[in-house]
Design a protein around this nucleic acid. Sequence first.
DNA 1: CGCAATATTGATTCCGTTCAAGGGTGGTGG
DNA 2: CCACCACCCTTGAACGGAATCAATATTGCG
Lengths: 232, 232
Amino acid sequence: MNRSDSYQECFGTEPTIFSTLTPEELVWVETQLVKNSYKKGDFLYHEGNRINGIYFIKSGIVKAFKTGPDGKEQIVAFAKKGNITGYRSTLSNEPACTTAQILEEAVICYIPGEVIFELIRKNGNFSIKLLQLVCKELNQANSFMQDIAQKTVRQRLAEVLLSLEENFGVTQEGNLNIILTREELANIIGTATESVIRLLSELKRKGIINIDKKHVALKDKNQLKNIALLLD
Amino acid sequence: MNRSDSYQECFGTEPTIFSTLTPEELVWVETQLVKNSYKKGDFLYHEGNRINGIYFIKSGIVKAFKTGPDGKEQIVAFAKKGNITGYRSTLSNEPACTTAQILEEAVICYIPGEVIFELIRKNGNFSIKLLQLVCKELNQANSFMQDIAQKTVRQRLAEVLLSLEENFGVTQEGNLNIILTREELANIIGTATESVIRLLSELKRKGIINIDKKHVALKDKNQLKNIALLLD
DNA sequence: CGCAATATTGATTCCGTTCAAGGGTGGTGG
DNA sequence: CCACCACCCTTGAACGGAATCAATATTGCG
């Protein structure tokens, strides 16, 4: 794919950090980016590799995870339509600290690091939006540290299910709009796959959620909130 | 304390994010900041409160923690000489997501939010340094998420002890240059106070560390590294 | 000096992991 | 089209790490 092919509306109309760009900047950035399609399982980048640009998710879902010495993944973030990923390595000139892998067929625009740095230098509002974005992720990471440290697996599962619905919404049938294996769920929560399976079964048995294969629907969100807060 | 009192070299000569400022900016910022002294136990700000400026640590040590529903603290960061804290709330216009409390007598400069925003708009290098700083904290948070999720309390304790020495150095006697209660150590690691006590005793018995009251000295760092990596 | 905070040690319980074995599912290619 | 295989899911049993509870001991500050 060459750059002339990729000159087109990539950012859409919904608010993203690129909403802060001037029309001229926007046109310029669009000429500088490279669009690509990815299928489930593809890797965007690997932990430890240098990357020198950020990835804007036009559609699809990406998971970012760290791999432990024993090979166990810890999922630390998701990126969906309108999000960016890969900025940490780019901004800090350091190897990527996570691996990014496609969860759901995606179209992603790569924006070279020099373009990002130029925008930061030229456009204070862009810098601020970017800072706010990173701060938000930091907040989420801190909250999650606390959760893993202080809450039970049961509470964390309830919380993660609620946050997945909030983040990805539901299909017409009411199922979470993201498909995860039990193992991936465990790798978010920080537990064993078997524990997730047991707890999901329990929640289903109690009528709090519905499970059909990998499709999960939250039926009683109040109950889930109670569980997340240990009020049950 | 009025502002004319506080016009003076606050940032020192060692590299901080303010090293990116031009001489003029530096002079300006120095006129805008307010310096204050704090003693152990004082609070800089509380979780949930709005703060509208950042705190530059001239000397001393500050801990930032989140408080759980049951009152249990989770320490998420330390700030020492040359560091800043409080920037998340300021940048994002949101309530503080942590409480900051003085661990060791401190002198701290408050820099109003408008000043920071102005610097971001005017000085791209400052923006980049700030972004890099937040990214670094995000990396640390993610690593720690993985540690809590995948490692044993024993491994995490070893790791935290090593990182405390790396971060704060040692006294002439070889003790860690930061004083923490057993409970605070537990609140970093995400475990119970009793577990920390038992593990510290064990490490002492094995000659890997020394303990005298609250003073801890790392005697065999290689051994500690092995424990942190589960190679023992 | 005395009290409140911190530290220690032991006993017990339990949540969650690990190990093991078997069943289900979906995608691919013959 | 369907048979096969890799991957995923499920359930049970046993173990173990760490939490909790309880009862002192120690420390250090006012």
